[in-house]
Design a protein around this nucleic acid. Sequence first.
DNA 1: ACGTTGACAATCTCGCCGGAACTGTCCACA
DNA 2: TGTGGACAGTTCCGGCGAGATTGTCAACGT
Lengths: 222, 222
Amino acid sequence: MTTYAERVRAQVREEALDVLAAAVTAGDGTLSMATVATRAGVSRQTLYNEFGNREGLLTALADRENRVLLRRVLEELDAHGDDIVAAVSAAAGTAVRMAADNVLHKALLTGETATVGLLVAHGGSLLLRSQSELSAFMLARFPTLDPEDTQLLVHVVARFVQSHLLLPHEPADVVAAQVSRLVERYLAGGPDGPNRVLRRVDPRPDDVPRDADRTTARGGTS
Amino acid sequence: MTTYAERVRAQVREEALDVLAAAVTAGDGTLSMATVATRAGVSRQTLYNEFGNREGLLTALADRENRVLLRRVLEELDAHGDDIVAAVSAAAGTAVRMAADNVLHKALLTGETATVGLLVAHGGSLLLRSQSELSAFMLARFPTLDPEDTQLLVHVVARFVQSHLLLPHEPADVVAAQVSRLVERYLAGGPDGPNRVLRRVDPRPDDVPRDADRTTARGGTS
DNA sequence: ACGTTGACAATCTCGCCGGAACTGTCCACA
DNA sequence: TGTGGACAGTTCCGGCGAGATTGTCAACGT
């Protein structure tokens, strides 16, 4: 039906969110609705029609960036074959790196409200909220893992990473290396004895991503 | 020489710090120098002579409570024979419990400045600052441990605990249980294979506390 | 000697106020 | 369907003055 109109609307939405994200990332704090409208090349009313109110705009941005963040982490988890240690370590490093590169992403990952106002007030830390998604993805991707163990591991790594974002960081590489050793030791200590990680069960090809993503990484847009 | 005078001075110091700690703990925010003096039963000038200025008073309190905190954690680490898992788990649980029971202790452990003003501004999180002390104590107390492994383990547990203090907590028991499993798995995954923890080397009696405390838990009063 | 009292300027805190900016909504217009 | 103007209600911000607090001094009492 409204195929064309919807495409335009989506365009406008993205443009507005881009403008706002750019401003926040550049440290210009948060912009007024009027400024966002101007920079996005639309009228203020269009903005209100599209997002309802300021809060709607903010949460739309938060949602979008949260999805980006989560997707990249899942991609990283998926990009290391059967090497669980490398996968988790790389994912953690990626999270730290993204937070370091982008104030907005850092705020979303940690849940700190100070930097970006109420933007994050709703969800809290993405790292802590998405633990079930991460666990589910891990289990789907690495079927040899034990569910309970995986949950705890994800929990620990998530809090470890978040903690590193909240205070005087060590560089992402160091954090990744620490996570690597942690995961290695943790998995090696499992019920099957040391080096359990290396015992693969199903040498499946690398084609699980889309499916697992669709199954687990659903947040509900709004 | 000034033995008697010094004892009196120490008495006054403790009294003043007690008064202030009580107020902070009770949520009465921070007191004025005048109020502290009155409640401690001394004149305002005595307070200034003793602590120099307000900041001196605050940091003196922070130092004292930090020492209490660290001592209790070390005691807990020391109170479980050769069971490393139980020791670390109990220590973590104790930290969480102390933070839950006492606003001041929570602020000191986490390093958050919001609650108690500049009191903590200097040191930052005790949990994160005292990692070398904790590692050293662990190594002295459990000689079978590998130094590097211990450092990483302490690091991870410290950040894990701190993270749990900073946001919607799970109860101390749950955190302790998680730490327990984490430590168990971590140690079991060590170079000697699973259940390495159980292989004791030196069945020494329980007499290490004072010595190790004196060796490692020195912060320098001021 | 040592702690107390009173006094002092300098600073900080806090509530209040007016002006500006912003939000959210309506309507006329193209 | 999107734009521009207009609008009341609200929030944000700098200035301001009263009052409290800090840090220091000197005179006093024991």
